[in-house]
């Protein structure tokens, strides 16, 4: 066996060892994930059963346990909105519907129930001032952030594929395709980045209790300026000493106890 053959044998063994390690790690992770998944599934089915039996409090507890474990799913959030609404908790119901809408803005069931919940809210929702971002990215409400990111990646990949073919094959016919692909990729990339910005800023919230006094300062003794009711949507402008500074509509600004507002 010469030196070259030894080297080849060594490479083969090294490959097997790495493959075995990866497989064992994958199996260990899969087992853990399966155990977690089984527990979540059981809790979920318990929540569904409780909802069916009219025990909405138990359904809320089950679904919130799953959500607290880190699962982020519009269907789960939708169920939480339903359970809260049936349980008489209008504020949390609208909060979970709003969270679900962030992930699946085009779900018809979700939109129907969300509209129903909003019809029960006391405070009239005033149209927020049209921001330049909202005008520029008007189409972003038509697709979920995940779908937008995927479309951006696909069109970006297609554009560079066409560019590569053009570079190596000198196909002039592809010139007409490259520009539209680039335009679409840029639009969806900008939209996706704005979605990331919005998710990171997380500035909106929902009033959770039946009534939430909005005060002029950071204490319960501060003058009550106005009162918001469950389900009212506010913009959170800041946070200080256990209070949120909120903006409801033109001229209606003040401080609300932090626990009275749920961030969307």
């Amino acid at each position: 066996m010469n030196r070259q053959e030894y080297r080849n044998r060594g490479r083969q063994w090294r490959g097997w060892i790495v493959a075995a390690a990866v497989a064992s790690l994958a199996l260990t992770g899969a087992a853990g994930a399966a155990a977690d998944g089984s527990s979540a599934a059981r809790t979920f089915l318990e929540g569904v059963a409780a909802y069916g039996e009219g025990d909405y409090g138990a359904a809320v507890a089950a679904f919130e346990t799953i959500a607290a474990s880190g699962i982020r799913n519009p269907r789960l959030y939708y169920n939480l909105g339903n359970a809260h609404l049936k349980n008489g908790d209008l504020g949390p119901a609208i909060l979970w519907y709003e969270r679900a809408l962030k992930l699946a803005p085009d779900d018809p069931d979700l939109n129907f129930n969300h509209a129903y919940a909003l019809s029960l809210a006391t405070d009239e929702r005033e149209t927020p001032p049209a921001s330049i971002y909202r005008i520029l990215f008007f189409w972003r409400h038509l697709a979920s952030p995940g779908a937008t990111a995927v479309v951006a990646l696909v069109f970006n990949g297609l554009f560079w594929l066409v560019m590569t073919v053009r570079f190596f094959r000198r196909k002039k016919a592809l010139k007409g395709i490259a520009r539209p692909l680039l335009a679409i990729a840029l639009i969806f990339t900008a939209t996706a980045i704005y979605n990331y910005y919005e998710a990171a800023s997380a500035r909106e919230g929902i009033v959770l209790p039946e009534t939430a006094p909005v005060r002029s300062g950071l204490s319960e003794d501060a003058t009550q300026l106005f009162v918001l009711h469950a389900g009212a949507k506010v913009v959170i402008e800041g946070e200080k000493e256990g209070f949120f500074r909120i903006y409801f509509s033109d001229g209606k600004i003040g401080w609300v106890t932090r626990s009275h507002i749920g961030r969307i």
Binding site: I66, I71, R72, A149
Partner: peptide, 28 residues
């Protein structure tokens, strides 16, 4: 007047975590 029922299939347990921004920019 009522709301539509809950979604009882286990697809509600699929974690739809968004692609992290660094990963998105990397893939881009």
């Amino acid at each position: 007047r009522d709301i539509l029922p809950i979604k009882d299939d286990l697809s509600a347990l699929e974690n739809q975590r968004p692609l992290p921004l660094p990963a998105f920019l990397g893939l881009l």
